[in-house]
Design a protein around this nucleic acid. Structure first.
Lengths: 393, 393
DNA sequence: ACCTTATGCTCGTACCACGAGGATAATGGA
DNA sequence: TCCATTATCCTCGTGGTACGAGCATAAGGT
């Protein structure tokens, strides 16, 4: 615990080290010479910093293969005894987890299907995994991030149509331990992953939209998602873009959600609401080319998707929009309809150079990667580094 | 000009000084002792910092009136030779400007009506004022911020329904000089002012919505507005919340704008679109109590306002929502309808503690104050302080 | 072998932050 | 009037990061 008086000096002490680790995650397998050049470190400072961080097990250096003339440099990587985080992605039918070191690489990616979708059972499973990882890594485990397909509010899972849960306390997962638990909405974290290592790399402001059951997303600026006051931001599916006569399970009416996912497709086809909207939509996407009615339903949905995205671009003014989950195949099913609705929804001055709408690159791994990013951001923060350095190594 | 190599040291050198000036603006007329306590500065550091900043004309100290026992402290304020900024608010019928020092206080608030609304004429007027202020303050003038009732895109005024302008280059206003021009949307800057010194003080995340002609706003996190990639964020009026059959001057259809302002009121009353939607709405608000049809029109608008705000709360998850311009009286005209639509538009888990919707406190001065905040943020940044200190005094 | 190139290391300097100890300037009571 | 009390300011020695110059080192090229 840093004394409050020493606060400013403590933090500035780890400022550059934190920058180094952030840079390392963006450039895995990079050399020390490249680090010094990118961050404009003097060679003296690079020596001192890497030395200090090596001594603290924050960094490992290995001789780099010589490339041309000059003294060979070293390759930077995570230290074998360095801090690690646990990333968990809790989805409708299954959940997965992985361990990551400060270089951002995911290790031990493991998954298993839910035996029961009952909250108590699932949370007990997760608690078991956390305990197992803590047993294996000991004090090296510094944070656990949990991506959930539902709305997060002050550390609680407020509601999840996907899982059928309502107001589940997640903080209890690491209660008793000292490891912080960082929960996040799955679409928000997938957006974070796209911004850092995905289709939105290089963009200052990026909007990610993900369709599974309903539509969610994240707006990131300089790689930081806008989380709002209680971590509940990004619920784009619950904007009144739709038909006011349709009630939404969220409690509101006319939500965009209802115009986008499998429920909307079923409605357009005159079918009852499917139990598994995601699976239903996937089926339709597969058989679309052969079925006119299905194609028309997909066109309606693609249009609703494009028009809404146009409105969101007006609100957020992103450099780029990324599509995750079913959003990408939905657009691909009716690209002209989507494009017309998208540009039609933009304010005139955006139409000269509309932000490109690109498919996400992380696929189903987005939320898991994003959870790792969230946890590693926490671990490589200046205060967390100060804490880590206070322990013996 | 700082050499790139010295960047890190230069910035950290001014880090605390920048914090001091930021704090001073939030606590005008505060004492040095209070500064040291709030920022947890050791008394030695407070001495050194204030001394350095006094020598650089960044700060003035005057003996504080003694209050009880103990050695009297000093009151901090802007130095009489310190840096200043020029804030300008360009509105439909008139424009105003003011000079501000680093303590944030607005001086010489002046206004004048447009003789002509022709862009060239108005911009020439503004150029004249900038030149006059520069003549008077010389190198002390460090930034000019310009609030405009229109959409900003990469430093240009992309379109303004209010002024009837389209794609006007604003950067030319200070061309030739070295003073940076910082343009901003008026609603965005009003939101900034509310977040720093208005109704949203203390909130981490705040949403400001302002109705004049159409509706615009700003989402601020920790006092920083989300500006997007090109400074065009916050165009809430151009989300497809409304009736798709209505074309909007922005080029899209069904914009929220068309459901909220004087044009919506006229439509509900079966009247043609008014030339001055703002004045028209003001008239109706005045005579509402005596006229049933008007009251019903106002109720429809208040409902559309509340429902949209509910959707935006789902998106942004703010701590508080502030209403500027006509938004406050529109709500007041039908508070029950507004409240029902607002909570009805919220996702269920927000309804337990919905973010309070409060009236803005800056009134018509919001954009001008926000422009001053924007300019002063620039001037008290670490790099700007480094530049200032490099000059002789 | 020697030069060239690229990088790492050492060390003196500059500067901010910190904390302890003492100085200072007011009040208020004896 | 004098002195204790209180709150603040100032001085100074220490610690720590960043910087840059100069030198050392380890390769490839000639």
């Amino acid at each position: 615990m840093a004394s409050p008086v020493r606060r400013r000096a403590q933090e500035s002490r780890w400022h550059t080290a934190s920058q180094v680790l952030a840079w390392l995650r963006l450039h895995p397998g990079a050399t020390r010479a490249a680090l010094a050049q990118d961050l404009q470190l003097s060679s003296g400072l690079a020596t001192e910093l890497t030395g200090r961080m090596r001594a603290l097990s924050l960094l490992a250096e290995a001789p780099a293969p010589p490339q041309g003339r000059g003294r060979p440099t070293t390759v930077l990587g995570a230290h074998p005894d360095g801090p690690v985080v646990l990333a968990i992605d809790l989805r409708m039918a299954d959940w997965r987890h992985a361990v990551a070191g400060v270089d951002g690489g995911l290790r031990d990616v493991t998954g298993s299907r839910h035996v029961s979708r009952d909250p108590e059972t699932v949370l007990a499973d997760i608690r078991r995994v956390i305990a197992a990882v803590r047993d294996r890594y000991g004090h090296r485990l510094r944070a656990v991030a949990l991506a959930v397909a539902g709305s997060i509010h002050d550390g609680r899972l407020a509601q999840s149509a996907t899982l059928g849960w309502r107001d589940v306390d997640l903080t209890a997962l690491t209660a008793g331990g000292t490891v912080p638990l960082l929960p996040g909405n799955d679409a928000t974290l997938a957006g974070l992953a796209e911004a850092r290592t995905g289709a939105a790399v290089g963009a200052r402001a990026a909007l990610h939209l993900m369709v599974e059951v309903g539509i969610g997303g994240a707006f990131t600026v300089d790689g930081q998602p806008s989380t709002g006051a209680h971590g509940a931001a990004g619920e784009y599916g619950h904007q009144p873009y739709g038909n006011r006569s349709l009630p939404c399970p969220c409690g509101s009416r006319g939500c965009w959600d209802l115009e986008i996912d499998g429920r909307a497709l079923a409605r357009h086809l005159g079918l009852p609401a499917p139990a598994d909207p995601r699976g239903f939509a996937r089926q339709l996407l597969d058989r679309a080319p052969r079925d006119t009615a299905t194609r028309q339903a997909l066109e309606a949905v693609a249009g609703a998707l494009g028009a809404g995205i146009g409105g969101l671009v007006n609100v957020h003014d992103p450099d780029v929009v990324t599509l995750g989950g079913l959003a990408a195949p939905l657009r691909a099913a009716a690209p002209e309809v989507f494009a017309a609705a998208y540009t039609g929804g933009l304010m005139a001055f955006h139409r000269g150079q509309p932000p490109p709408v690109v498919d996400a690159v992380h696929g189903d791994d987005g939320a898991l990667h994003g959870a790792a990013v969230l946890a590693l951001d926490h671990v490589t923060s200046e205060t967390a580094l100060a804490e880590w350095s206070a322990r013996p190594h």
